[in-house]
């Protein structure tokens, strides 16, 4: 973790004026890419992810096919202009890892056995990055899959928690992410009560770790509601 002299919390308020448990302004939209089978755009404050889902569709080259099941191909990519110093195009090690854990975060909700030899392709582009990009991407992927009409056991909710200046917080922005004592991105299935992504780096007591997870599960309910509203809005229009 990087060090800074700057206080992350002053008089109970965070850099952007939020209280420790407050989430940033969340915006969600589905059906934003006409060519895709399902698509979405999700923003948490200044972090914006756009997602396209294609499939289930035939998978080539054939040696990637599973005879008894479909697979998910998940690609998380950051636009070159999504960060301060231009990101070099092409997948970095970080993006490759995130693609993997995000794929595993959504895999449990799909009935892949029903689509042997096919793929469900999920393409994420981070247009603006200001912290918590992987959980924003997972919320967007959940919406895009539902928008594609792919049968799902549950939606997937993503939210990050962490610790700055001895305070447990939720939905880290970029600066908090850089200078936090700990950072915990998490995804879960709100109705099945299963955690499908859990990562952590930093330094926490076991009690703090457990508390952050509980805080995420609690606050994530709001995100779940927003996802449901967003999907309903599309079908009521």
């Amino acid at each position: 973790m990087m060090k800074t002299d700057e206080k992350m919390i002053v008089k109970g308020k965070r850099l952007d004026g939020r209280k420790p448990d407050d989430l940033r302004k969340i915006e969600m939209e589905v059906g934003v890419i006409p060519n895709a089978d399902g698509s979405s755009k999700v923003s948490f404050g200044k972090t914006t992810a756009i997602v396209a889902v294609y499939g289930p569709r035939s998978l080539f080259p054939r040696h990637l096919q599973e005879s008894e099941s479909g697979i998910i191909q998940f690609k998380y990519d950051m636009a070159t202009f999504s960060v301060d110093d231009r990101k070099r195009p092409g997948p970095s090690r970080r993006e490759t890892e995130i693609s993997k854990v995000a794929r595993l975060a959504i895999e449990p909700v799909l009935f892949l056995k029903n689509y042997p030899k096919t793929t469900v392709d999920v393409f994420v582009e981070i247009l603006q990055a200001d912290g918590s990009t992987r959980v924003t991407a997972i919320n967007a992927a959940s919406l895009a899959l539902a928008d594609a009409g792919v049968p799902m056991r549950d939606l997937v909710v993503g939210l990050s928690g962490g610790k700055v200046d001895d305070t447990l917080i939720l939905d880290l922005c970029g600066k908090e992410d850089n200078y936090s004592d700990a950072d915990v991105p998490m995804a879960f299935l709100p109705n099945k009560n299963e955690i499908t992504l859990l990562q952590m780096d930093g330094r926490l007591t076991p009690e703090e770790t457990k508390q952050i997870i509980r805080n995420i599960l609690h606050a994530g309910k709001e995100i779940y509601k927003k996802q449901v509203e967003t999907l309903k809005r599309k079908y009521s229009e």
Partner: peptide
């Protein structure tokens, strides 16, 4: 100037270097 034909934009586009 650089361009990436992201697979998100069309079913025929595939991942990989430009």
């Amino acid at each position: 100037t650089e361009a990436e034909l992201m697979p998100m934009a069309h079913p025929d586009f595939t991942s990989g270097p430009p």
